[in-house]
């Protein structure tokens, strides 16, 4: 019975993985292409990303497409950057790479009634991707610190630190706007 359940669960996982890869493969390649020039490297990044997602496949919610896309985006971006770092292409820091490639921090035309929320969205868009990615995985994808660490190839301590610092930056930003409370 246990074996049957295990096999069934493995089959569900495979189906889930195929669904994710099928739906977001092109998107993964697109994100990886921002950082990697070689198409084969982009494919490697997509595969590596899929491997990481498989590690936490049970925690992934496939019902919300936007969240799933965000998750794929964050993991692929980090994977591509790790490939860059591994191949020592340029001696730029992670923050520098993000700033060069992710310069589009203009607020969008989403109508936000709540002033506090509006300020927070603005602050998130201005936030360094180093912090934004971990916070996004935690608050948008509801992942645990341990899972985030696995996905981003980071020690759990670093993830905790980034979450703490990121939250501090965001809190400070909305406090400066005078919207505390």
């Amino acid at each position: 019975m246990l074996l049957f359940e295990a096999i069934l669960s493995e089959e569900t996982k495979t189906e889930k993985a195929i669904h994710i890869y099928k739906s977001y493969y092109s998107y993964m390649i697109y994100i990886a292409g921002r950082y990697l020039r070689d198409p084969s490297e982009c494919e490697d990044a997509a595969q590596e990303c899929m491997l990481k997602l498989l590690m936490i496949i049970d925690s992934i919610d496939t019902s919300d497409e936007a969240r799933l896309k965000g998750l794929c985006g964050v993991v692929t971006r980090n994977t591509a950057l790790n490939i860059c770092k591994r191949k020592e292409r340029g001696n730029v820091s992670l923050e520098e790479v993000f700033n060069v490639t992710d310069g589009n921090c203009e607020p969008e035309s989403v109508v936000i009634a709540n002033e506090g929320l509006k300020a927070l969205v603005l602050a998130i868009e201005r936030l360094s991707p180093v912090y934004r990615d971990v916070l996004k995985l935690k608050y948008l994808n509801q992942l645990k610190e341990r899972e985030i660490a696995k996905l981003l190839d980071l020690p759990q301590k670093t993830v905790n630190q980034r979450i703490f610092r990121g939250k501090m930056i965001l809190r400070k930003a909305i406090e400066e706007e005078g919207l505390n409370g």
């Binding site: 936007a66 969008e108 998130i124 996004k136 948008l140």
Partner: peptide
Amino acid sequence: EELLGKAFEIEQYNEISKEPTA
């Protein structure tokens, strides 16, 4: 934290809207 969750959802929709379609 509640606000953060909502803000990230909005930020995600904003990001998706800037990207090419499927």
